[in-house]
Design a protein around this nucleic acid. Structure first.
Length: 344
DNA sequence: CGGATTTGACCTGCGC
DNA sequence: GCGCAGGTCAAATCCG
Protein backbone atom coordinates (compact mmCIF):
# COMPACT_ATOMS: atom_id res chain seq x y z
CA UNK A 1 0.00 0.00 0.00
CA UNK A 2 1.40 3.32 -0.95
CA UNK A 3 1.28 6.58 0.90
CA UNK A 4 -1.79 7.77 -0.84
CA UNK A 5 -3.58 4.71 0.22
CA UNK A 6 -2.77 5.43 3.75
CA UNK A 7 -4.12 8.86 3.50
CA UNK A 8 -7.32 7.78 1.99
CA UNK A 9 -7.67 5.16 4.59
CA UNK A 10 -7.68 7.77 7.15
CA UNK A 11 -4.24 8.15 8.46
CA UNK A 12 -4.23 10.53 11.25
CA UNK A 13 -2.72 13.32 9.27
CA UNK A 14 -5.28 12.98 6.61
CA UNK A 15 -7.96 14.57 8.67
CA UNK A 16 -6.16 16.42 11.27
CA UNK A 17 -6.30 19.71 9.53
CA UNK A 18 -9.91 19.49 8.73
CA UNK A 19 -12.38 21.16 10.91
CA UNK A 20 -15.24 19.21 9.60
CA UNK A 21 -15.32 15.58 8.95
CA UNK A 22 -18.12 13.82 7.32
CA UNK A 23 -18.76 10.61 9.08
CA UNK A 24 -20.64 9.30 6.17
CA UNK A 25 -17.58 9.67 4.13
CA UNK A 26 -15.58 7.86 6.65
CA UNK A 27 -17.94 5.03 6.62
CA UNK A 28 -17.56 4.86 2.98
CA UNK A 29 -13.86 4.92 2.83
CA UNK A 30 -13.22 1.31 3.18
CA UNK A 31 -15.19 0.26 0.21
CA UNK A 32 -13.97 3.27 -1.57
CA UNK A 33 -10.40 2.37 -1.06
CA UNK A 34 -11.14 -1.18 -1.87
CA UNK A 35 -12.50 0.04 -5.10
CA UNK A 36 -9.17 1.40 -5.98
CA UNK A 37 -9.84 5.03 -5.45
CA UNK A 38 -7.07 5.16 -3.02
CA UNK A 39 -4.37 4.29 -5.41
CA UNK A 40 -4.82 7.30 -7.48
CA UNK A 41 -7.64 6.40 -9.69
CA UNK A 42 -10.97 4.85 -10.04
CA UNK A 43 -9.71 1.46 -10.59
CA UNK A 44 -12.71 -0.54 -11.44
CA UNK A 45 -15.20 0.31 -8.82
CA UNK A 46 -17.44 -2.11 -10.49
CA UNK A 47 -15.02 -4.77 -9.57
CA UNK A 48 -15.39 -4.08 -5.95
CA UNK A 49 -16.51 -7.18 -4.21
CA UNK A 50 -20.03 -6.76 -3.06
CA UNK A 51 -18.94 -7.61 0.37
CA UNK A 52 -16.77 -4.59 0.36
CA UNK A 53 -19.80 -2.46 0.08
CA UNK A 54 -21.70 -3.95 2.84
CA UNK A 55 -20.88 -1.17 5.19
CA UNK A 56 -23.34 0.74 3.10
CA UNK A 57 -25.66 -2.09 3.49
CA UNK A 58 -25.45 -1.56 7.12
CA UNK A 59 -26.61 1.97 6.68
CA UNK A 60 -29.35 0.84 4.49
CA UNK A 61 -30.39 -1.77 6.86
CA UNK A 62 -30.45 0.75 9.52
CA UNK A 63 -32.31 3.33 7.61
CA UNK A 64 -34.71 0.94 6.10
CA UNK A 65 -35.48 -0.53 9.42
CA UNK A 66 -36.70 2.81 10.49
CA UNK A 67 -39.56 5.00 9.58
CA UNK A 68 -39.62 7.88 7.22
CA UNK A 69 -37.32 9.61 9.55
CA UNK A 70 -34.58 7.19 9.08
CA UNK A 71 -32.94 9.33 6.52
CA UNK A 72 -32.69 12.00 9.01
CA UNK A 73 -31.09 9.65 11.37
CA UNK A 74 -28.57 8.54 8.93
CA UNK A 75 -28.19 11.82 7.37
CA UNK A 76 -26.76 13.22 10.47
CA UNK A 77 -25.82 10.51 12.74
CA UNK A 78 -23.58 9.18 10.15
CA UNK A 79 -22.51 12.51 9.01
CA UNK A 80 -19.87 13.35 11.38
CA UNK A 81 -18.15 16.59 11.48
CA UNK A 82 -16.00 17.89 13.78
CA UNK A 83 -13.30 18.87 15.74
CA UNK A 84 -12.75 15.24 15.77
CA UNK A 85 -9.99 13.77 13.86
CA UNK A 86 -12.15 11.22 12.36
CA UNK A 87 -9.28 9.65 10.69
CA UNK A 88 -10.78 6.30 10.98
CA UNK A 89 -14.11 4.94 11.76
CA UNK A 90 -14.66 1.42 12.71
CA UNK A 91 -18.26 0.63 12.96
CA UNK A 92 -18.31 -2.39 15.09
CA UNK A 93 -20.80 -4.86 16.19
CA UNK A 94 -22.34 -3.26 19.13
CA UNK A 95 -22.20 -6.37 21.13
CA UNK A 96 -18.52 -6.64 20.60
CA UNK A 97 -17.59 -3.29 21.81
CA UNK A 98 -16.82 -4.03 25.33
CA UNK A 99 -13.49 -2.59 25.90
CA UNK A 100 -10.57 -4.81 26.63
CA UNK A 101 -12.51 -7.96 26.64
CA UNK A 102 -14.72 -7.19 23.77
CA UNK A 103 -12.81 -4.83 21.68
CA UNK A 104 -13.80 -5.54 18.15
CA UNK A 105 -12.18 -8.78 17.67
CA UNK A 106 -10.74 -10.08 14.49
CA UNK A 107 -13.58 -12.44 14.39
CA UNK A 108 -15.98 -9.58 14.28
CA UNK A 109 -14.32 -8.32 11.23
CA UNK A 110 -14.22 -4.65 11.82
CA UNK A 111 -11.05 -4.96 13.71
CA UNK A 112 -9.70 -7.65 11.57
CA UNK A 113 -6.73 -5.44 11.37
CA UNK A 114 -5.81 -4.88 14.94
CA UNK A 115 -2.36 -4.07 13.88
CA UNK A 116 -3.57 -0.79 12.58
CA UNK A 117 -6.49 0.40 14.57
CA UNK A 118 -5.77 3.97 13.82
CA UNK A 119 -6.24 3.65 10.19
CA UNK A 120 -8.52 0.81 9.70
CA UNK A 121 -12.05 1.50 8.74
CA UNK A 122 -14.83 -0.81 9.41
CA UNK A 123 -18.44 -0.78 10.07
CA UNK A 124 -21.25 -2.92 11.07
CA UNK A 125 -24.75 -2.61 12.21
CA UNK A 126 -25.97 -4.72 14.94
CA UNK A 127 -29.45 -6.05 14.93
CA UNK A 128 -31.81 -4.16 12.84
CA UNK A 129 -35.03 -5.94 12.67
CA UNK A 130 -34.77 -7.96 15.78
CA UNK A 131 -34.06 -11.15 13.98
CA UNK A 132 -30.98 -13.01 14.93
CA UNK A 133 -29.35 -10.07 16.44
CA UNK A 134 -25.73 -10.77 17.08
CA UNK A 135 -25.64 -10.52 20.76
CA UNK A 136 -26.66 -9.02 23.98
CA UNK A 137 -26.27 -5.33 23.87
CA UNK A 138 -28.57 -4.51 21.06
CA UNK A 139 -31.16 -6.87 22.27
CA UNK A 140 -30.71 -5.37 25.62
CA UNK A 141 -31.11 -1.95 24.19
CA UNK A 142 -34.33 -2.89 22.58
CA UNK A 143 -35.60 -4.27 25.74
CA UNK A 144 -34.69 -1.17 27.63
CA UNK A 145 -36.33 0.94 25.03
CA UNK A 146 -39.46 -1.04 25.37
CA UNK A 147 -39.35 -0.59 29.07
CA UNK A 148 -38.91 3.07 28.64
CA UNK A 149 -41.88 3.26 26.37
CA UNK A 150 -43.88 1.37 28.86
CA UNK A 151 -42.72 3.75 31.51
CA UNK A 152 -43.77 6.68 29.42
CA UNK A 153 -47.13 5.15 28.81
CA UNK A 154 -47.51 4.44 32.44
CA UNK A 155 -46.52 7.96 33.21
CA UNK A 156 -48.98 9.39 30.76
CA UNK A 157 -51.69 7.21 32.05
CA UNK A 158 -51.07 7.82 35.67
CA UNK A 159 -50.04 11.36 36.18
CA UNK A 160 -51.32 11.24 39.68
CA UNK A 161 -48.38 9.21 40.78
CA UNK A 162 -45.62 10.91 42.54
CA UNK A 163 -42.43 11.61 40.69
CA UNK A 164 -40.70 9.10 42.81
CA UNK A 165 -43.11 6.37 42.06
CA UNK A 166 -42.91 7.23 38.41
CA UNK A 167 -39.22 6.88 38.44
CA UNK A 168 -38.98 3.86 40.57
CA UNK A 169 -42.03 1.97 39.52
CA UNK A 170 -41.54 -1.17 37.54
CA UNK A 171 -43.65 -0.96 34.45
CA UNK A 172 -42.24 -4.09 33.05
CA UNK A 173 -44.27 -7.19 33.39
CA UNK A 174 -42.52 -10.08 34.87
CA UNK A 175 -40.78 -12.28 32.40
CA UNK A 176 -41.18 -9.68 29.74
CA UNK A 177 -37.91 -8.82 28.16
CA UNK A 178 -37.44 -5.23 27.39
CA UNK A 179 -36.23 -4.44 23.97
CA UNK A 180 -33.96 -1.88 22.52
CA UNK A 181 -33.94 0.07 19.38
CA UNK A 182 -31.68 -0.97 16.58
CA UNK A 183 -28.25 0.19 17.29
CA UNK A 184 -25.19 0.92 15.28
CA UNK A 185 -21.72 1.18 16.63
CA UNK A 186 -18.51 2.31 15.12
CA UNK A 187 -15.08 3.36 16.11
CA UNK A 188 -13.61 6.69 15.29
CA UNK A 189 -10.19 8.03 15.77
CA UNK A 190 -10.78 11.24 17.54
CA UNK A 191 -9.37 13.43 20.20
CA UNK A 192 -12.78 14.41 21.40
CA UNK A 193 -15.18 11.94 22.81
CA UNK A 194 -18.35 13.49 21.63
CA UNK A 195 -18.26 13.78 17.89
CA UNK A 196 -20.31 16.44 16.29
CA UNK A 197 -22.86 14.80 14.07
CA UNK A 198 -25.37 17.51 13.43
CA UNK A 199 -27.86 16.58 16.04
CA UNK A 200 -28.07 18.05 19.43
CA UNK A 201 -27.29 15.73 22.25
CA UNK A 202 -27.69 16.07 25.94
CA UNK A 203 -25.44 14.12 28.16
CA UNK A 204 -27.42 12.35 30.78
CA UNK A 205 -24.95 10.07 32.35
CA UNK A 206 -21.47 8.86 32.61
CA UNK A 207 -20.29 5.60 33.97
CA UNK A 208 -17.01 4.00 34.57
CA UNK A 209 -16.59 0.95 32.46
CA UNK A 210 -15.21 -2.18 33.91
CA UNK A 211 -11.74 -3.03 32.69
CA UNK A 212 -11.41 0.32 31.09
CA UNK A 213 -9.82 3.48 32.38
CA UNK A 214 -12.18 5.52 30.28
CA UNK A 215 -15.71 6.32 31.27
CA UNK A 216 -18.68 5.77 29.04
CA UNK A 217 -20.87 8.73 28.35
CA UNK A 218 -24.55 8.59 27.61
CA UNK A 219 -26.24 11.06 25.35
CA UNK A 220 -29.81 11.61 24.34
CA UNK A 221 -31.09 13.54 21.41
CA UNK A 222 -32.48 16.80 22.66
CA UNK A 223 -35.34 16.89 20.24
CA UNK A 224 -38.64 16.37 21.87
CA UNK A 225 -39.80 12.82 21.93
CA UNK A 226 -36.81 11.72 19.97
CA UNK A 227 -35.74 8.44 21.49
CA UNK A 228 -32.32 8.30 20.00
CA UNK A 229 -29.48 7.75 22.35
CA UNK A 230 -25.85 7.22 21.92
CA UNK A 231 -23.06 5.96 24.04
CA UNK A 232 -19.56 7.17 23.67
CA UNK A 233 -16.51 5.57 25.10
CA UNK A 234 -12.90 5.19 24.33
CA UNK A 235 -11.24 1.99 23.52
CA UNK A 236 -8.90 1.03 26.25
CA UNK A 237 -6.81 -0.79 23.75
CA UNK A 238 -6.42 2.24 21.65
CA UNK A 239 -7.34 5.39 23.53
CA UNK A 240 -7.29 7.30 20.30
CA UNK A 241 -10.33 5.38 19.17
CA UNK A 242 -13.75 6.52 20.21
CA UNK A 243 -16.49 3.96 20.16
CA UNK A 244 -19.85 5.49 19.45
CA UNK A 245 -23.03 3.51 19.62
CA UNK A 246 -26.23 4.95 18.27
CA UNK A 247 -29.47 3.53 19.40
CA UNK A 248 -32.91 4.24 18.06
CA UNK A 249 -34.22 6.31 15.25
CA UNK A 250 -34.68 10.01 15.15
CA UNK A 251 -38.27 11.04 15.08
CA UNK A 252 -37.47 14.30 13.44
CA UNK A 253 -36.26 14.69 9.93
CA UNK A 254 -33.68 17.38 10.05
CA UNK A 255 -30.69 17.47 12.22
CA UNK A 256 -30.81 20.38 14.52
CA UNK A 257 -28.15 22.90 14.75
CA UNK A 258 -25.71 22.51 17.44
CA UNK A 259 -26.02 24.99 20.22
CA UNK A 260 -22.75 26.69 19.75
CA UNK A 261 -23.02 27.53 16.17
CA UNK A 262 -21.47 24.57 14.59
CA UNK A 263 -22.71 23.76 11.21
CA UNK A 264 -25.52 21.49 10.40
CA UNK A 265 -23.60 18.93 8.59
CA UNK A 266 -26.31 17.14 6.84
CA UNK A 267 -29.58 18.53 5.81
CA UNK A 268 -31.95 16.80 3.59
CA UNK A 269 -32.91 18.84 0.61
CA UNK A 270 -35.78 21.09 1.35
CA UNK A 271 -37.62 19.57 -1.52
CA UNK A 272 -37.32 16.17 -0.06
CA UNK A 273 -40.54 14.43 0.49
CA UNK A 274 -41.65 13.72 4.00
CA UNK A 275 -40.12 10.37 3.55
CA UNK A 276 -37.05 10.92 1.46
CA UNK A 277 -35.76 7.84 -0.13
CA UNK A 278 -32.83 5.99 1.09
CA UNK A 279 -31.32 6.31 -2.30
CA UNK A 280 -31.60 10.02 -2.02
CA UNK A 281 -29.85 9.89 1.22
CA UNK A 282 -27.16 7.77 -0.20
CA UNK A 283 -26.67 10.17 -3.00
CA UNK A 284 -26.12 12.95 -0.57
CA UNK A 285 -24.03 10.89 1.68
CA UNK A 286 -21.84 9.60 -1.03
CA UNK A 287 -21.32 12.96 -2.50
CA UNK A 288 -20.10 14.11 0.82
CA UNK A 289 -17.85 11.17 0.99
CA UNK A 290 -16.41 11.97 -2.33
CA UNK A 291 -15.86 15.49 -1.21
CA UNK A 292 -13.77 14.32 1.64
CA UNK A 293 -11.89 11.85 -0.41
CA UNK A 294 -11.08 14.47 -2.89
CA UNK A 295 -10.38 17.17 -0.43
CA UNK A 296 -12.96 19.32 1.18
CA UNK A 297 -11.94 22.46 -0.52
CA UNK A 298 -10.97 21.28 -3.91
CA UNK A 299 -12.35 18.00 -4.86
CA UNK A 300 -10.06 16.58 -7.42
CA UNK A 301 -10.98 14.72 -10.50
CA UNK A 302 -10.68 11.44 -8.79
CA UNK A 303 -13.05 12.46 -6.12
CA UNK A 304 -15.51 13.78 -8.60
CA UNK A 305 -15.35 10.65 -10.59
CA UNK A 306 -15.58 8.70 -7.45
CA UNK A 307 -18.62 10.63 -6.42
CA UNK A 308 -20.25 9.89 -9.69
CA UNK A 309 -19.49 6.29 -9.34
CA UNK A 310 -20.70 6.16 -5.84
CA UNK A 311 -23.89 7.70 -6.94
CA UNK A 312 -24.35 4.81 -9.20
CA UNK A 313 -23.73 2.55 -6.32
CA UNK A 314 -25.83 4.62 -4.08
CA UNK A 315 -29.16 4.25 -5.60
CA UNK A 316 -30.70 1.18 -7.05
CA UNK A 317 -27.59 -0.85 -6.76
CA UNK A 318 -27.26 -0.01 -3.17
CA UNK A 319 -30.80 -0.92 -2.52
CA UNK A 320 -30.02 -4.46 -3.37
CA UNK A 321 -27.69 -4.72 -0.49
CA UNK A 322 -30.45 -4.01 1.88
CA UNK A 323 -31.85 -7.33 1.07
CA UNK A 324 -28.79 -9.10 2.14
CA UNK A 325 -28.96 -10.59 5.56
CA UNK A 326 -27.31 -8.39 8.05
CA UNK A 327 -24.53 -10.47 9.33
CA UNK A 328 -23.56 -7.62 11.52
CA UNK A 329 -19.99 -8.67 11.60
CA UNK A 330 -17.30 -6.86 9.86
CA UNK A 331 -15.38 -9.77 8.69
CA UNK A 332 -18.30 -10.61 6.58
CA UNK A 333 -18.63 -7.10 5.38
CA UNK A 334 -15.12 -6.16 4.60
CA UNK A 335 -12.52 -8.40 3.17
CA UNK A 336 -9.38 -8.63 5.10
CA UNK A 337 -7.52 -7.23 2.21
CA UNK A 338 -9.34 -4.04 2.82
CA UNK A 339 -8.67 -4.07 6.42
CA UNK A 340 -5.02 -4.35 5.81
CA UNK A 341 -4.90 -1.85 3.06
CA UNK A 342 -3.63 0.87 5.23
CA UNK A 343 -0.97 -1.11 6.81
CA UNK A 344 2.54 -0.38 5.83
C1' DC B 1 -31.74 32.80 33.06
C1' DG B 2 -32.07 28.82 30.30
C1' DG B 3 -29.82 25.00 28.69
C1' DA B 4 -26.04 21.72 29.15
C1' DT B 5 -23.07 19.04 32.09
C1' DT B 6 -21.70 16.64 36.26
C1' DT B 7 -22.32 13.27 39.55
C1' DG B 8 -24.14 10.35 43.11
C1' DA B 9 -27.99 7.46 43.81
C1' DC B 10 -30.95 4.20 42.18
C1' DC B 11 -32.79 0.53 39.11
C1' DT B 12 -32.40 -3.54 36.15
C1' DG B 13 -30.46 -7.61 34.29
C1' DC B 14 -27.49 -11.30 34.71
C1' DG B 15 -24.34 -14.69 36.50
C1' DC B 16 -23.05 -17.33 40.39
C1' DG C 1 -30.60 -14.27 47.09
C1' DC C 2 -26.53 -11.62 46.35
C1' DG C 3 -23.26 -8.98 44.07
C1' DC C 4 -21.70 -6.79 40.04
C1' DA C 5 -21.96 -3.98 36.06
C1' DG C 6 -24.52 -1.29 32.92
C1' DG C 7 -27.96 2.14 32.33
C1' DT C 8 -30.89 6.05 33.91
C1' DC C 9 -32.53 9.78 36.76
C1' DA C 10 -32.44 14.22 38.65
C1' DA C 11 -30.50 17.67 41.77
C1' DA C 12 -26.63 20.52 41.75
C1' DT C 13 -23.59 23.00 39.19
C1' DC C 14 -21.64 25.26 35.26
C1' DC C 15 -21.65 28.26 31.38
C1' DG C 16 -22.83 31.43 27.64
Amino acid sequence: MDGEDRELFGRHHFFQDREEIDLSSIFSQRPAAAAGVSDGGLRGLDDVPRAALTPFMSFDDYSMSGSATSDGMLGSDFDMFGTAEAAAVEPVADSKINCCNGHPTPSTGGAASPASPNSSVSSSSAEVDGEEEPAGQCKKSKQEEEIKEQKQEAKAGDEADSDKSKKLSKPKKKGEKRQREPCFAFMTKSEVDHLEDGYRWRKYGQKAVKNSPFPRSYYRCTSQKCPVKKRVERSCQDPAMVITTYEGKHTHRSPTRTPRGSTTIFQLPAAASPAPSTASFHHHLLMQQARVLGGMQQPDANANAYAIHLQSLGSPAMQRFQLLPDCGLLQDLVPNSLVHKDQP
